[in-house]
Design a protein around this nucleic acid. Sequence first.
DNA 1: TCAGGCTATCGGTTTTTCCGATAGCGCCAT
DNA 2: ATGGCGCTATCGGAAAAACCGATAGCCTGA
Lengths: 297, 297
Amino acid sequence: MEFRQIRYALSVAKERSFTKAAKRLNISQSAVSEQVKLLEEEAGFPLFQRTPRGIDVTDRGRTYLYEAERIVGDVLSLADTARRLRGAAQDTFTIGMGSGLAQIFMPRLFGELDQIMPGTRVEIVTAPTRTIFGDLHEERLDAVITIESDPDRVPAGLSFDRLAVVDMMLIVPPKHPLARVRSPIDVGRLIAEPIVMSELSVGYGQVVMSLFTDLGIRPNILAIANNVDTIKAIVQTGKAIAIVPGPCADNEVELGVLKRLAIAPTRNIALALYRRRQPFSRRKEGLFSGLRDALKG
Amino acid sequence: MEFRQIRYALSVAKERSFTKAAKRLNISQSAVSEQVKLLEEEAGFPLFQRTPRGIDVTDRGRTYLYEAERIVGDVLSLADTARRLRGAAQDTFTIGMGSGLAQIFMPRLFGELDQIMPGTRVEIVTAPTRTIFGDLHEERLDAVITIESDPDRVPAGLSFDRLAVVDMMLIVPPKHPLARVRSPIDVGRLIAEPIVMSELSVGYGQVVMSLFTDLGIRPNILAIANNVDTIKAIVQTGKAIAIVPGPCADNEVELGVLKRLAIAPTRNIALALYRRRQPFSRRKEGLFSGLRDALKG
DNA sequence: TCAGGCTATCGGTTTTTCCGATAGCGCCAT
DNA sequence: ATGGCGCTATCGGAAAAACCGATAGCCTGA
């Protein structure tokens, strides 16, 4: 597979025409046709359905091109990174954070913001675990607050300070039969419950998934959402349960719109502040020290 | 840039030698040298420092190659996806949503999920306004719930149904002096208040910004966060105020951890369900109709 | 000082990509 | 029913890119 093939195929998908795509790309129609053919041969299925009305993307083609487009995005991002590496930096401090962690850490950070980050624009970017280490490594972020991950998944150039350890807990609607139970809920009991999951292969979505796979069972997944607050809102509708880091739902529990219960076996996660090993400038190094101390509480 | 160049460069980085990399790659040393040279020219800085001891990766080269490695990972992932697609396909409906909208729309969607989307895996992706229309247009999403935007900013192939109109409202910590005020708060009074903003150039962050610029004043921006729940958490710390779509803070207001006030002049935003004009398959068209009806309430 | 190992460069060969021409198909107007 | 039009797939040939082997130049160690 070549990058040009992906670019041509994406253009065809967008224009719904080989001829128009060729015009966009400033090459001949036959060149587009041939490269797309090669890509379809490599994929092993047609990406497009040629109809007299125009080009349709096949169902499989759509999924394929979705990921292909990520590649293009990464390539563009790489170009941006190169541009940035060629030039200078700005005076902000950018913090990446997994969703659902705001209620835990914003009080600590903003409690003493003027002392720890005077004259600095703080930007907080909610981002998924899947990409957040890469963003940190690539200097799009200055620091990251997220679940402590296996060293295998973390680029070698990063280090971390542990900020907190929190239990994963079950949240249910208040009228759910489990809501009255006082002892920890066995995960096995949840096998038939419709559950909202986070992304299954990274972050604490993976932790939750492992609770089930460790028992050799599959959860009954009602929906997948990549944001904890969406997950909480879905549970509030009464149609599902979820397992999330306990403190994420402090407000909803206090409000009474969710019930929170311990699970058995217990599973906790460590939350950490990641940074690059390579030192910041002296000024940013000071900002970072203050940040770390504040977040540890 | 071509994938081959990235592959060769990564191999050089790993082997710390052009000659050894060439052997790994089963090509000549000169081919590796020339392709890496092209990549360095495109990047605009050297990736490697040639020393008699061997090849060192430069600092910038390390950053660049880490991101380049992600591209290779994505290419491999795409090959996996192709392999999987050659097998069975999956049946999902993917909905993109702006942050902060979960509390408004998840009750409506999940209230009758079995009726409106039987046997379908629902995925909900929180995404920023900046990219969400592109994702919809490029068919990475099946539908999008977000702020109704200027037609200029929306790809021509999309249409929308209005779901709701909500007021932008001021949220403050309960002990804030403004918290006791009952009449609408004039935006001019907020000029000196530290305020948390969303991204300034799109979505309702832009709406909030215009409240100030319409008066010819600049807000006193304490921080920028791309996620409403982060914004609410920051306001809870007591250090800032924010202007958000009113219903987003229903829970926090009921809990008493935030106060919500009207602003003058009033500003409301319309929230809409966007889709592509081009019809889905018959089955998905049915799913979409149910979705739209459910979300309208 | 010299041999060895390595990378960068160069001229030539091979492979890939692109191009223009055209066959074939489907649709639409007459 | 038919011809014209627009589109994609294919083909042969030209152009461009990738690769190769040879070699110059540099550095290190004996």
